[in-house]
Design a protein around this nucleic acid. Structure first.
Length: 484
RNA sequence: GGCUGCGUAGCAAAGUGGUUAUGCAUCGGCCUGCAAAGCCGCGUACACCGGUUCGAUUCCGGUCGCAGCCUCCA
C-alpha cells in the first residue's frame, strides 16, 4: 500500500487515486531563462522516480510537467541579451532537455508551454471574473481577489490576517488588497503580448499552471508536485485560481521536495550559490548525480558537496562491481528483495532505504558469485531491474567501470575539451592514456607475473594507478581494470 | 514577528517504544606473490533538560542550535 506525504494534511496518507488504476500528476517545471541547477535536477529526478514507481505499481499514469516560457524574468533577460524572448526560451528548453537526458529523466507524457496555452489561460481568467474571483485593477491588469476565496492559506498553513500584517507584501495601488495577485498583466511598449478581452498583455506567474494542469488532467486530479518554495505563494494561488474557476476540488495530494543546500544554505538563483547541471557534469558523471539525489529522502534537505558526490560515486562503483562479469538472465525480480524494495518505496518513496536494499542484494550477489551458485544470474537480474526503477545501474557494468568519471566527452560538444583528472582531483593528466595502451600494459604485467617478476609487475600496476587505472587480479589468473 | 521542518555514530543517511539499517572511512581476519575487489568481524549513535512508561533515540513539554516560507526562486 503506497503512502504519500500530503502537504495539504501534513501527514502521510494512503494513496487512493480518483479513478482506480489511473493517476494524473502535474509537476511545476522550469521557468526557462537560464540553465538548470542542481536544485532543478532534484525536482526532475525526484518526480521522475515517482513516475517510474507509480508505473511499476501498475498505475496508468499521465505525467504532466509544464514549461513556463513567458514571464518578467524571461523578458528582462531577453532584453539584456538583445534577443527575442522566444530565442532565449528555445535555447534553454533545449539545454534543459539535454540535462534531463543526461540524468536519465524520462520525458513527461505532456509538456505544455505557457505560450501555447494562452487561450486556456484567458478562458480561466474570464471564468474567474465571471464568478467574481477576479477584477480589473486601476492600471488595467487583472487581479485575483484573495479575500473572495475562503480556503486561502490552507496549503501553506497561513492565514490571511498574518499575511496582511507582513511588511514585505508590496503595496500596489492598482489592487484592492495587497494580497491580490496578478492574473493578466498589460504589456508595456516593446514587451511581448497576446490579445485578450482586457487588452494586450501576458499571463501573470501563477495562472499558467492552473490552466495547463486542469486542461491536461481535468479540473480535479491526483498529484501535484514541485519544490518546497512553491508552496507559497505559487501553489496556494493555483488552488485559489483553479478552485475559484471550477468550483471543484483541485488536487488530492500535494508533494513538495526539499532543497539542495550549499554550506547549509539554500541553493538558489537569488543567492547566487548554485551549480548548474552542466557544470557539475564536467566533474561527475550523470549517474552519480542521480544517485546522490536519491541517496536522501526527497523531503529532506540535500547538502551539495564534492565529498558527497565522491561518496555517491564510490557507492555506485560497488553496485556496478557486483554486476560486472555476470551474465544477467531473464528472470523475475527475487521476491524477497522486491518486497523490501517496494515496502521502502511505498513509504512515501523512501529511496535511501530502497538503495540500502540494493546494497544488501549486491552483497548476496557477491557471495553467490564466490559459491558459483546458480542464483547469480537471478540476483544480478534483480539488482539491475530494481536499479532501473530508480533510473540507475542500466549501463554495461564493465563499460561503466572503465569509463571516465566525467560525462563522456563526445556526448555533448561543449564538453569536448574537458581533461581527465585523477580520482583525487589534485592533478590532471593528459588524454594520452587510452584503452589500448592500458591493455598493452596489462599484458606486459601478465607476462611479468608469469615470469614471477613481481617487481616489474608491481611497477606496471603502480604506473597505471598513477593514471587513475586500477588493476584487479581475479583468482582465475585474469586481470581486469577500471578507472578509479 | 507569524508559520513549517530539522538536530542520529568520523562523514553521509534511514528508521524504531525494548532485537543488524545501509554506503563511505577506520581497525582486525580470510583471500592474494603483494595488492585491488570481494567476504567475515568490529561501532552501547540518536542536541540538551524534564515528564509519561517496566523500558525512550523513538511519545509529551521546555531549552538551545540550524534551515525554510512569509518577496522572484525547484
Amino acid at each position: 500500500m503506497l503512502k504519500i506525504y500530503n502537504t495539504l494534511t501534513r501527514s502521510k496518507q494512503e494513496f487512493v487515486p480518483r479513478q482506480p488504476g489511473k493517476v494524473g500528476m502535474y509537476v511545476c517545471g522550469m521557468t526557462v531563462y537560464d540553465y538548470c541547477h542542481i536544485g532543478h535536477a532534484r525536482v526532475m529526478v525526484v518526480f521522475d522516480t515517482v513516475a517510474r514507481y507509480l508505473r511499476h505499481a501498475g498505475y496508468q499514469l499521465t505525467y504532466v510537467r509544464n514549461i513556463t516560457d513567458i514571464d518578467d524574468k524571461i523578458i528582462q533577460r531577453a532584453h539584456q541579451n538583445g534577443e527575442a524572448f522566444t530565442a532565449l526560451t528555445e535555447r534553454f528548453i533545449e539545454a534543459m532537455h539535454e540535462d534531463e537526458r543526461a540524468l536519465s529523466v524520462l520525458p513527461p507524457d505532456l509538456e505544455p508551454k505557457a505560450t501555447q496555452s494562452i487561450d486556456d489561460i484567458i478562458a480561466m481568467i474570464a471564468k474567474l471574473i465571471e464568478r467574481e474571483y477576479a477584477y480589473v485593477g486601476g492600471n488595467g491588469d487583472v487581479f485575483y481577489a484573495v479575500s473572495r476565496f475562503d480556503g486561502y492559506g490552507k496549503l501553506s498553513g497561513k492565514n490571511i490576517d498574518d499575511l496582511n500584517a507582513g511588511e514585505r507584501v508590496d503595496v500596489d495601488n492598482a489592487k484592492r488588497d495587497p494580497l491580490d495577485f496578478v492574473l493578466w498583466k498589460m504589456a508595456k511598449p516593446g514587451e511581448p503580448y497576446w490579445d485578450s478581452p482586457w487588452g494586450q498583455g501576458r499571463p501573470g506567474w501563477h495562472i499558467e499552471c492552473s490552466a495547463m494542469s486542469t486542461c491536461c488532467l481535468g479540473n480535479h486530479f491526483d498529484i501535484h508536485g514541485g519544490g518546497m518554495d512553491l508552496q507559497f505563494p505559487h501553489h496556494e494561488n493555483e488552488i485559489a485560481q483553479s478552485e475559484g474557476a471550477t468550483g471543484e476540488q483541485f488536487v488530492n495530494y500535494w508533494m513538495h521536495n526539499g532543497f539542495v543546500r550549499v554550506n547549509e544554505e539554500k541553493m538558489s538563483k537569488s543567492l547566487g550559490n548554485f551549480f548548474t547541471v552542466r557544470e557539475v557534469l564536467k566533474q561527475y558523471r550523470p549517474e552519480i548525480i542521480r544517485f546522490f539525489i536519491l541517496s536522501s529522502h526527497y523531503r529532506s534537505p540535500l547538502n551539495y558537496s564534492d565529498e558527497q558526490l565522491d561518496d555517491a560515486g564510490t557507492a555506485l562503483t560497488r553496485l556496478y562491481t557486483a554486476l560486472r562479469g555476470v551474465e544477467i538472465i531473464d528472470a523475475p525480480i527475487d521476491e524477497e528483495y522486491k518486497q523490501r524494495f517496494e515496502q521502502a518505496m511505498d513509504d512515501d518513496f523512501n529511496t535511501p532505504v530502497a538503495l540500502a536494499v540494493l546494497f544488501d542484494l549486491a552483497r548476496e550477489l557477491n557471495k553467490a558469485k564466490a559459491n558459483q551458485s546458480e542464483r547469480v544470474g537471478q540476483l544480478a537480474a534483480s539488482l539491475k531491474k530494481l536499479g532501473g526503477l530508480l533510473g540507475v545501474l542500466q549501463e554495461e557494468p564493465d563499460k561503466y567501470l572503465k569509463g571516465q568519471k566525467q560525462r563522456d566527452a563526445v556526448a555533448v560538444g561543449e564538453f569536448a575539451s574537458i581533461s581527465l583528472s585523477n580520482p583525487t582531483g589534485t592533478a590532471s593528466v593528459t588524454g594520452q592514456i587510452n584503452d589500448e595502451w592500458i591493455e598493452q600494459k596489462k599484458q606486459q604485467r601478465l607476462e611479468a607475473k608469469k615470469a614471477k617478476n613481481w617487481t616489474l609487475a608491481d611497477q606496471i600496476r603502480d604506473e597505471l594507478k598513477q593514471q587513475g587505472i586500477i588493476l584487479e587480479d581475479a583468482p582465475d589468473g585474469t586481470t581486469s581494470w577500471r578507472r578509479g
